[in-house]
Simulated assay, not measured.
Amino acid sequence: MSTITQPRALLIIDYTNDFVADNGALTTGQPGQIIEPSIIKLADAYIAAGDYVIFPTDLHTANDAFHPESKLFPPHNLANTWGRQLYGHLTDWYTKHQQDDHVYSFDKNRYSAFANSNLDNYLRSRHITDLTLTGVCTDICVLHTAVDAYNKDYTLTIPASAVASFNASGHAWALNHFEQTLGANVIR
């Protein structure tokens, strides 16, 4: 008797130059840079297993007075800029796999990858209920995506070695929140 396993999805959230590179506009710096090997290892494992790798990536336009982030943060992840490109070796990984039908990339304009996007439809149409969240920032976009996923009844895993923030206390708080409040499996 064979068992059919449900596909899983790895979300690589906002892993761009502006959020990770030393000279990024809103960089996590070294904490973001050291998670790169973990993210790539996970992406390789998900593709090898026939699972999905999804890239929800922040997109902004310069001088957008109507976007709430414009009041909170300097301009970042602007359309058609170096800052919005994937960071480091993840660029090569994406270039190699972008034509794979199990790799999906989309623009997002809010912290949560679910806000104003078709992510929920994409996942449900593929019978995906198990999500692993990686990327930056642990206590902003990863957190808001996790809260929305929880509210939509997805099962969550967050590898601590694959998320980072520019705020160490916020990062620690978010890991605890994932585990204690959202019931996520936080791999430490």
Results as ranks from 00 to 15, higher is better:
residue 126 R to A: 04
residue 169 S to Y: 09
residue 6 Q to A: 14
residue 35 I to V: 14
residue 109 N to T: 15
residue 89 H to S: 15
residue 50 G to N: 02
residue 57 T to I: 13
residue 126 R to N: 15
residue 182 L to Y: 02
residue 117 S to E: 04
residue 168 A to G: 06
residue 86 L to I: 01
residue 44 D to M: 02
residue 59 L to W: 07
residue 40 I to S: 10
residue 50 G to Y: 09
residue 137 C to T: 15
residue 21 A to I: 01
residue 109 N to E: 12
residue 87 Y to G: 01
residue 79 A to F: 09
residue 167 N to S: 13
residue 37 P to D: 08
residue 66 F to Q: 14
residue 140 I to M: 12
residue 85 Q to P: 00
residue 162 A to R: 07
residue 71 K to I: 04
residue 155 T to I: 11
residue 89 H to C: 02
residue 79 A to S: 10
residue 34 I to W: 05
residue 97 H to I: 02
residue 180 Q to A: 14
residue 135 G to P: 04
residue 138 T to Q: 05
residue 49 A to H: 11
residue 89 H to G: 10
residue 17 N to F: 01
residue 20 V to A: 04
residue 96 K to C: 04
residue 151 N to G: 09
residue 156 L to Q: 08
residue 33 Q to R: 15
residue 91 T to K: 12
residue 77 N to H: 00
residue 123 L to N: 01
residue 130 D to L: 05
residue 132 T to E: 09
residue 68 P to A: 07
residue 107 D to E: 15
residue 175 L to D: 02
residue 132 T to S: 11
residue 22 D to W: 06
residue 149 A to W: 01
residue 23 N to H: 15
residue 162 A to I: 03
residue 30 Q to K: 12
residue 176 N to Q: 14
residue 157 T to R: 14
residue 53 V to P: 05
residue 104 Y to R: 10
residue 81 T to H: 03
residue 154 Y to S: 03
residue 47 I to Q: 11
residue 17 N to M: 00
residue 150 Y to H: 13
residue 151 N to R: 15
residue 99 Q to W: 00
residue 63 N to I: 01
residue 96 K to D: 11
residue 181 T to L: 11
residue 51 D to W: 06
residue 128 I to N: 11
residue 16 T to R: 00
residue 147 V to A: 12
residue 127 H to P: 01
residue 100 D to E: 12
residue 144 H to T: 04
residue 93 W to N: 01
residue 13 I to D: 03
residue 73 F to A: 06
residue 29 G to I: 00
residue 40 I to F: 02
residue 37 P to W: 07
residue 68 P to W: 14
residue 87 Y to T: 00
residue 83 G to M: 10
residue 6 Q to E: 15
residue 175 L to M: 08
residue 98 Q to E: 09
residue 102 H to A: 13
residue 2 S to F: 04
residue 171 H to A: 06
residue 95 T to Y: 06
residue 115 A to P: 00
residue 185 N to F: 07
residue 18 D to Y: 00
residue 22 D to Q: 12
residue 103 V to G: 07
residue 70 S to Y: 12
residue 103 V to S: 10
residue 145 T to G: 11
residue 185 N to I: 09
residue 106 F to N: 09
residue 8 R to P: 10
residue 86 L to S: 01
residue 6 Q to C: 09
residue 165 S to N: 08
residue 9 A to E: 04
residue 30 Q to E: 14
residue 100 D to Y: 10
residue 102 H to V: 04
